[in-house]
């Protein structure tokens, strides 16, 4: 059972959280300014890497904050976490 650190509540078992998918996919700030294809890419396409992955989790059984977590999808190791605006480090870790 993975241990995820909520920036507000501290380390908690992952079952307290709800997974929310890839955090590198951002909703276009001005949806009308992008092409239809770019919009649908954002809705549907994912890098789905094997390895470090920035992802959203919501602390649903805790403070209900959405947080950003960098977790390895191959080892399940959590490398770091922070609030949604957090930059979790270098680009080599997506």
């Amino acid at each position: 059972m993975m241990l995820i650190t909520c920036p507000w509540c501290g380390p908690r078992a992952h079952v307290e959280f709800t997974y929310g998918g890839d955090a590198t996919v951002a909703r276009p700030a001005a949806p009308d300014a992008v092409t239809a294809e770019a919009w649908l890419d954002h809705v549907y396409l994912r890098d789905n890497p094997r390895g470090p992955h920035d992802e959203w989790w919501q602390h649903t059984s805790g403070c209900r904050s959405w947080i950003k977590v960098r977790r390895d999808t191959w080892t399940h190791r959590v490398h770091g976490s922070g609030p949604p605006e957090a930059n979790l480090g270098g680009d080599e870790h997506r």
Binding site: L45, D47, P49, R50
Partner: peptide, 18 residues
């Protein structure tokens, strides 16, 4: 399970997660 990784070798992103 690994479709995304193979497709990525051909420069293609897929609508899926593992």
């Amino acid at each position: 399970g690994n479709s995304s990784r193979l497709a990525a070798m051909a420069g293609i992103r897929l609508p899926m997660e593992s």
